[in-house]
Nucleic acid binder design. Sequence first.
DNA 1: GGCAATTTTGCACACTAGTTCGAAATCCAT
DNA 2: ATGGATTTCGAACTAGTGTGCAAAATTGCC
Lengths: 199, 199
Amino acid sequence: MSDVHTPKRGRPGYDQRAILEIAVTAFNEYGYDATSMGVLAARLALSKAAIYHHFSSKDEVLQLALDEALNGLEGVLLEYGAVTGTAIDRLAYVLRGAVRVLTSRLPYVTLLLRVRGNTDVERLALTRRRAFDRAVSALVIEARDEGSLRSDIDPRVVTRLLFGMVNSIAEWYRPEGPEDAAQLADDVLAVALDGLRRR
Amino acid sequence: MSDVHTPKRGRPGYDQRAILEIAVTAFNEYGYDATSMGVLAARLALSKAAIYHHFSSKDEVLQLALDEALNGLEGVLLEYGAVTGTAIDRLAYVLRGAVRVLTSRLPYVTLLLRVRGNTDVERLALTRRRAFDRAVSALVIEARDEGSLRSDIDPRVVTRLLFGMVNSIAEWYRPEGPEDAAQLADDVLAVALDGLRRR
DNA sequence: GGCAATTTTGCACACTAGTTCGAAATCCAT
DNA sequence: ATGGATTTCGAACTAGTGTGCAAAATTGCC
């Protein structure tokens, strides 16, 4: 019964997903606003008009891309490890999960992290992203209260520095091996929890 | 002899600096590309053409703004504390300096950190920024070799996580008090060197 | 009051932006 | 070959882009 023969009929060409992939890459290269439908079409070797068969607007391309990133991040919060155990364990799990999503959906999350809130789509994405931030922030406070984290630094600053490290990955990580991501998550946790100083 | 009475003659209005300040704020709010000369003129309560009396192009506005940020960062590398003492001391000094420049010239550095390299001006800025990164990276390696930093993590990753924390400040820091910046630098160094774990 | 200096203005231009629409192209199944 | 399904195309449109220029406005100094 494995008939997933992906029904093809009609003139062959891009499907929505394939266009999205290339579009997001271009958005990250030049920035969303600086990427015109013209150069986007050129990269696809398509006419501008053809893109509008798959998307109703440039805004919708961005929308689907941001959803891809946000669904991944929000999914982490629902996983077993994110809701079970001590606060420090859950925090560590979520941070590892964020690194995992960041690396596996790299271009989508990269795009998300650059959104400024110019349009309704962007503002909605920012709202969802801030909700994720607040969830992590709550874990930081909980972990501090249970005595796992130091209490001499404002937990809001702590949360932001944590996100600073994790999110920066989007700016420089380039996938090379399959285990890089896990190694990277280990490094982030090691630096964040134990620090860089030799001891 | 304190005659810094700023010679004023001719029709009063903006000087280049005042326009730059507002322009950079707008650039950070909407993004450089998404900020048209039209809305910029509206924010200045000026006509578009008036801006061209102070700047030869939109690109030049960006250029001067990025110079402001880069001069500040590069200046840190020339200060006494950045060239004297052990590697770990110099590294700490430069990181504190980066936080200081970041907070004191916040909008300019924020703009710099978002540059993608679309134009010649942007590419030149990226080159200068990368040179600053390499200088810090060299300090990290030196500090590791002298035994001050742990050696079980790739120094390139270390450098990037450090910049991740420091640069993230541009995304959320809002000046409130005069001592915030120094306190913030302390927090960054504390997390980076000693970690978040209670000990 | 006139002069030089400085800033602002209105209008125009060439160009690019995102988007629409009807028609053409190319596949699969019959 | 025919028909339905899917994708692409060319051409066009409107709104908005960054920019240039000559003229006007408003100041301090003589």
